[in-house]
């Protein structure tokens, strides 16, 4: 892999600068890129990691694991009362039953939004996140401003995300750990009676499962699709 960090900006501003004059001075790696290659080549040579396994992991996280997994969990919980109860009682097992299995041995807990209560997830220490159902965390989730503000001023965070909750609604903030990861079960939007699980899953955004957003309404979904 040659990486995306090759630098040759001191040449011309022509569109074709990739193809001229570069052969006389070789390629450039950033210090960081070279550092990671150093670690990887050492670990492979010593047999601590398998290069093929690394490729599979990256491919999996780039293409297969993402918020669509969590959306399926939520849609099923909205549609199937038995699954709902199982999810609330033992989220780890219920989620595993759909084939979403973590590698870090994390224990999953589902927290449910209701008319009276809104839940929001943060990891104040190091951005622990429910990878099997949401993929890898977005940049803002990993930022110190979010981590600090979610705990001190959750309503303000929601406002930053353009979400206003009714005055009386209580907000609970859940701090993830290496052992416990939370998944927010958002409220099912009005006007979705009779929708299939596949249709419902399209209403479930990543942010609604972190608690910095709500599930889309049918009207919002239509707007997005337009």
């Amino acid at each position: 892999m040659t990486g995306g960090n090759d630098h040759h900006g001191h040449h011309h501003h022509h569109d074709d600068h990739d193809h001229h004059h570069d052969n006389d001075h070789g390629s450039h790696l950033s210090q960081t890129d070279a550092r990671v290659r150093a670690l990887e080549s050492i670990l492979i040579e010593k047999g601590y990691v398998d290069p093929a396994a690394l490729d599979v992991l990256i491919e999996t996280y780039e293409t297969q694991v993402g918020p669509h997994n969590g959306a399926r969990v939520v849609a099923k919980a909205w549609s199937d009362p038995q699954f709902h109860d199982w999810l609330m009682r033992d989220a780890t097992a219920a989620i595993h039953s759909l084939g979403y299995i973590g590698r870090q041995g994390e224990h999953m807990v589902a927290v449910k939004n209701t008319e009276r209560e809104h839940n929001m997830v943060v990891c104040t220490l190091c951005s622990c996140y429910p990878w099997p159902v949401l993929g890898l965390p977005p940049v803002w989730y990993k930022s110190a401003p979010y981590r600090a503000k979610a705990v001190r001023d959750p309503r303000g965070v929601l406002a930053d995300f353009g979400v206003t909750l009714p005055e009386g609604k209580e907000i609970r903030v859940w701090d993830s750990t290496a052992e416990i990861r939370y998944l927010v079960l958002p409220e099912r939007p009005e006007g979705t009676d009779g929708w299939s699980e596949e249709e419902l899953a399209r209403l479930v955004t990543r942010d609604s499962m972190i608690g910095t957003g709500l599930a889309l309404t049918p009207a919002e979904l239509k707007e997005q699709g337009a």
Partner: peptide, 27 residues
């Protein structure tokens, strides 16, 4: 607290922003 400025807040951002991030993650 002040607004969460300059943080991309939308779905659809890339999982890794550079190949080295993916390698370090996988290691």
């Amino acid at each position: 607290l002040p607004p969460l400025e300059n943080l991309p807040q939308h779905d659809g951002e890339p999982v890794f922003r550079a190949p080295w991030e993916a390698r370090a993650f996988a290691l």
